[in-house]
Design a protein around this nucleic acid. Structure first.
Length: 880
RNA sequence: GAGCCGUUAGUUCAGUGGGAGAGCGCUUGCUUGACAGGCAAGAAGUCACUGGUUCGAAUCCAGUACGGCUCACCA
């Protein structure tokens, strides 16, 4: 149905255009995967955002790319599933809720585990709604009927299944090791959750006295408080300085413990004094050395980072207060004799920012080597995961090749509880989905799993796995593409790949499209502390989701970072406004035209043929580049086609026909206008879904929504390169005239007399055929087109390919200036001719360059020389 | 210490073997009946540097400088 009167306001109102549209799409079920067997499936799973809060520009970027792909594939006839969902984000969410509780002066312990988890669920529900609302504002074509949450019953079942199978296979084990401990959130962390930052610290040099001797051994440390847990001093076995000391005892200052001097290859003789204090309970290397030498492990800290009873008089002090105190004490005792400034890397918790403590603790681990081997093997096969851009495959492989075991237990309450029970008396471990039968004798592990343990299963747990017969799993897994930032290749992409290989035997996705980070206009990371974050919802409010999306899609190339610029978003709003007004023009002219009235079989004007040819080129280019995920290139091409070619040229050219008397031609041109706009809107739709749907609905159309219309195809019938060449010739004449008129300040509104001297019969005929365009665009009152023209001296001239143009503008022309101008022109063409000649007289060029290139140069020479000849003739005439 | 990315117009970024491009900004002119958030014309760049490959390099290779990122157990 199309209304008879199509009146649009002259200003594009993004709020009006975007309001209610999302509801229309969702209610119409246009985004629902159909399981239609006649179509090929295409699937994407969303990287599930954390339920901790609002989406930021990074999310907007990531999801917009996915939406663009999904919308295009849908239009290309695929049965598209884009599966939405969210991540419980264990530590992040728990930290946020705990912070909220703290405001009320409460801690999670005040509530107890059950009540606390309940509170987090409430929080989750609230924020999940926020997130859905934001997805809607962005216009994401998600299939909500399949929305998942990592803590859903089915997904939790998948998590347990994976844990148990890995345990039974010996790929999950429990043990006491040095892990990264966050004393603030009081949980273990995996290696990648630790962020190393350069810190200006101190290097403390100490002398440990030997037992029954006056000798000392010199050691140095950045963490003096750990000396309370020292159980040895190590030197290199080949170090001549210390040969006589190996096996001797040292009296540990303050503590008074006797500790041994051991020999170990790990020690670097060149570094410092060549002797190292060994604290097996607080340093991973020392732990290893401790194992080799059977050393005692003395833990000196509590879980909250305060000192424990093994710290003697320092018990109860915070680790950093203890450091100050112990430094003072050791200095007084003469043990600590030198303090140097020392810049070194200190690990911080990714979430809480607290300084991470290497800490001896019993945790669960995934044995990585066998899983990693399989993933590395995959990349050597023909069936590998394609990273876009390719270089990220190296990043990924490097990490996989240097993999270390993954600590997966977290001392948190929010997450998947570890399905392990310990026998109260025997300490026996039981792992299984169901609790042991004599449950009263068993205690379940208190810990939950690293949140990434469940996200690693996302592409298949969301599709119904472990039920491998479930319809979605069979149809939509493996997925086609995963879109994510380079910052989580290790956290997530890598883990999905090896878990998927292990449990489904397939890679989880064909392609991984990697993007960068969003930065502010000065190139800084957006962060809360800098206060330079931009809320995508503010951008949408000011300029609309379409403008934001187009900005995100075209602002950078794959893998590069993107700076946010309000000015650019505004410029894109202008583009939307341009499209709006071009459409307004079309709608004003087509009256009650229906979709079936669009008829391109009539006599096409030169401009019609030109724009249809250009449309084909655009379809080809945009399709090809969007397929390659080159949204920037595709978007720019479309932008230029719409603005420069369709609006600035074709609409203007079409006015001639529309204002003419020939009704048949008029109908054809109207059809071309409607057709080109329709096809253009379809191509633009994945980029700017709202405005394109709005306009498409007002245009003559067939169907309920543009979201499910067919993607444009090249129509060879309308490719006419000859027409393009002719049209360009006319455009060059028009541009040259505009140029001259600008030179002498003759407004385009003033009518002029004009002569065109064509160089030959063909050019004359072609230009004559386009007389109406030239008359109109050059605003002539009298136009002569001929091979010989009688031109008054008082005229300005210009040469174009195939013709010379004369504008007699008596009174406006200064003959001297005109001569000077033409001489400059002559110089220009002389140097151009020289350049071409240089190339063509180079044997190497003529012999080696492709025939096409050489031919083009020859054509240029003919053209340039003719231009030069015409200018010289004119100059001779003027100088006479 | 290892690896990766970037260096192109005032600015933010495209381009990637055959004559330097876009948006914004700047200059000039336009009440052109879709749009003044517009139209038209223009100024503006030894494409970081040095070598090499090539008939031809901003584009490929090697190195240098500067900026940024990632990984790595140096006490």
């Amino acid at each position: 149905m199309t209304e008879t009167k199509r009146q649009l306001p002259s200003k594009y109102d993004h709020k009006e255009v975007e309001r209610d549209r999302y509801t229309f799409w969702v209610d119409g079920e246009f985004f629902k995967a159909t399981n239609d067997e006649t179509k090929e499936p295409y699937s994407i799973v969303i990287p599930p955002p954390n339920v901790t809060g609002r989406l930021h520009l990074g999310h907007a970027w990531d999801t917009t790319m996915q939406d663009t792909i999904a919308r295009m594939k849908r239009m290309q006839g695929y049965d598209v599933l884009w599966l939405p969902g969210m991540d419980h984000a264990g530590i992040a969410t728990q930290a946020v809720v705990e912070a909220e509780l703290k405001k009320e002066g409460k801690s999670r312990y005040d509530l107890g585990r059950e009540k606390f988890v309940e509170t987090v669920w409430e929080w989750k529900d609230e924020y999940a709604n926020f997130i859905r609302e934001q997805w809607g504002k962005l216009g994401l074509s998600l299939d909500y009927s399949r929305e998942r949450f990592t803590l859903d019953e089915k997904l939790s079942d998948a998590v347990q299944e994976v844990f148990i199978r890995l345990y039974e296979k010996g790929l999950i084990y429990r043990g006491e090791y040095i892990i990264n401990w966050d004393p603030q959130t009081k949980t273990a962390l995996s290696d990648i959750e630790v962020i190393y930052e350069e810190v200006e610290g101190k290097f403390y040099h100490m002398r440990y006295p030997l037992k029954d001797s006056d000798e000392y051994i010199e050691i140095a440390t950045t963490r003096p408080e750990t000396m309370l847990g020292d159980t040895a001093v190590a030197v290199h076995p080949d170090d001549e300085r210390y040969q006589h000391l190996i096996g001797k005892k040292v009296i540990l200052p303050i503590v008074g413990r006797e500790i041994e001097i051991v020999a170990d290859d790990y020690v670097d003789m060149e570094f410092g004094s060549g002797a190292v204090k060994i604290t097996p309970a607080h340093d991973p290397n020392d732990f290893e050395i401790g194992n080799r030498h059977n050393l005692e492990r003395v833990l000196i800290m509590n879980e909250d980072g305060t000192m424990n009873e093994n710290a003697g008089k320092y018990k109860g002090l915070d680790r950093f207060d203890c450091r100050k105190q112990i430094v003072q004490d050791l200095q007084e005792q003469g043990v600590l004799f030198k303090i140097e400034d020392h810049v070194h890397q200190v690990g911080h918790s990714e979430r809480s920012g607290a300084v991470v403590e290497p800490y001896l603790s019993t945790q669960w681990f995934v044995k990585m080597q066998p899983l990693a081997d399989r993933a590395i093997e995959l990349q050597k096969s023909n069936d590998k995961v394609n990273f876009v851009p390719e270089r990220f495959e190296q990043t990924y492989l490097h990490w996989m090749e240097n993999i270390r075991d993954w600590c997966i237990s977290r001392q948190l309450w929010w997450g998947h509880r570890i399905p392990a029970w310990y026998h109260n008396e025997t300490g026996e471990v039981y792992v299984g989905k169901e609790p042991p039968k004599d449950i009263e004798n068993w205690t379940q592990d208190e810990d939950v799993l690293d949140t990434w343990f469940s996200s690693a299963l996302w592409p298949f747990s969301t599709m119904g796995w472990p039920d491998e017969e479930s319809e979605d799993f069979k149809r939509y897994f493996p997925t086609d593409v995963l879109v994510t930032g380079y910052d989580i290749i290790f956290f997530w992409v890598a883990r999905m790949i090896y878990q998927s290989l292990e449990f489904t035997g397939k890679k989880p996705f064909n392609d991984v499209l990697i993007h960068g980070l969003i930065r502010d206009s000065e190139g800084r990371k957006m962060s809360k502390s800098l206060g330079n974050g931009v809320d995508p919802m503010d951008v949408i409010d000011k300029y609309g989701a379409d403008a934001l999306r187009y900005f995100l899609l075209t602002g950078s190339t794959p893998g590069q970072d993107l700076r946010f610029y309000w000015e650019r978003v505004e410029a894109i709003w202008n583009f939307a406004n341009k499209i709006w007004n071009a459409s307004r023009f079309v709608l004003m002219n087509i009256d009650d035209m229906e979709y079936d009235d669009i008829d391109l079989s009539g006599e096409l004007s030169l401009a019609d043929e030109w724009i249809l040819t250009r449309l084909n080129k655009t379809i080809e280019h945009v399709t090809h580049n969007t397929d390659k995920y080159e949204f920037g290139e595709a978007g720019r091409y479309l932008y230029n086609f719409i603005w420069d070619e369709f609006c600035d040229w074709y609409i203007e050219l079409s006015k001639l026909t529309l204002q003419g008397k020939d009704e048949k031609k008029k109908q054809t041109t109207l059809s071309v206008l409607a057709h080109v706009l329709d096809q253009t809107l379809r191509m633009l739709h994945p980029y700017m879904p709202f405005i394109t749907e709005e306009i498409w609905q007002m245009l003559p159309h067939d169907g309920e929504s543009i979201t499910v219309q067919a993607w444009p195809k090249v129509n060879e019938q309308f490719t006419n390169e000859e027409a393009v060449e002719k049209m360009e010739k006319v455009m060059n004449v028009i541009k040259a005239v505009r140029n001259i008129r600008a030179e002498v300040n003759t407004p385009m509104s003033r009518k002029v007399t004009m002569y065109i001297k064509a160089t030959d019969e063909m050019n004359e005929a072609q230009l004559e055929a386009s007389r109406h365009y030239i008359e109109r665009f050059c605003n002539t009152d009298e136009l002569t087109i001929a091979q010989t023209v009688d031109v008054p001296e008082q005229a300005m001239s210009a040469v174009v390919t195939g013709a010379e143009i004369f504008l007699p503008l008596e009174g406006l022309i200064d003959l001297e200036e005109e001569i000077a101008r033409l001489e400059k022109e002559r110089e220009k063409w002389e140097s151009e001719v020289a350049l071409v000649d240089k190339k063509l007289s180079n044997d190497g060029f003529v012999k080696n360059a492709p025939e096409k290139v050489v031919e083009a140069e020859r054509k240029k020479r003919v053209d340039y020389e003719e231009k030069l000849r015409l200018i010289e003739e004119r100059l001779a005439q003027l100088k006479k």
